[in-house]
């Protein structure tokens, strides 16, 4: 499949460019991982070797960092997150999480405080925050994205 191998090649050159760009920064690994994840939506498994070589680290070190942080992942992240911090729970976010899971399944994850606790409960849909979310608003937001998809 030639198109696929071309894609792989350009992926690998993008990873190289990103790694090169940050390599002289002290503590470059997190900025590199963030930028790769922003470009691909996740960290491609094959990138680990390349990042390790580019930053003069072992593959185990790079993998260790990726697996430590909740933000970094080898597969695409959730479409929605429901805040399960205490303030949002006090306003019924547990029910929102159940409802969102019923609609999106594995595409929903909890998050622990997004810093809008005076307007609880909060959710995030496709990287946009929404505060004071009622079950009806949640349904509407999730149905809207379904329709858009």
């Amino acid at each position: 499949m030639p198109s696929n191998s071309n894609a792989l090649e350009s992926d690998s050159s993008l990873i190289k460019t990103i790694t090169e760009k940050h390599r002289h920064q002290p503590g470059a690994l997190l900025p590199v991982l963030h930028e790769i994840q922003a470009s691909f939506g996740f960290i491609p498994k094959d990138a680990v070797k390349q990042i390790a070589e580019g930053l003069n680290l072992s593959r185990a070190e790079v993998h260790g960092v990726i697996s430590f942080y909740h933000d970094f992942r080898y597969t695409a992240g959730p479409q929605a997150r429901v805040c399960m911090g205490e303030a949002c729970q006090s306003m019924g976010s547990a029910a929102l999480l159940d409802r969102a899971k019923a609609l999106l399944g594995d595409g929903v994850e909890p998050v622990y405080c997004i810093g809008n606790c005076a307007c609880a409960p909060n959710i995030e849909v496709d990287h946009v925050y929404h505060g004071r979310v009622s079950p009806e608003v949640l349904d509407a937001l999730l149905k809207k994205r379904e329709a858009a998809a």
Partner: peptide, 8 residues
């Protein structure tokens, strides 16, 4: 890092 729930 402002991780504490209830803070902003």
């Amino acid at each position: 890092d402002e991780g504490d729930s209830g803070t902003f």
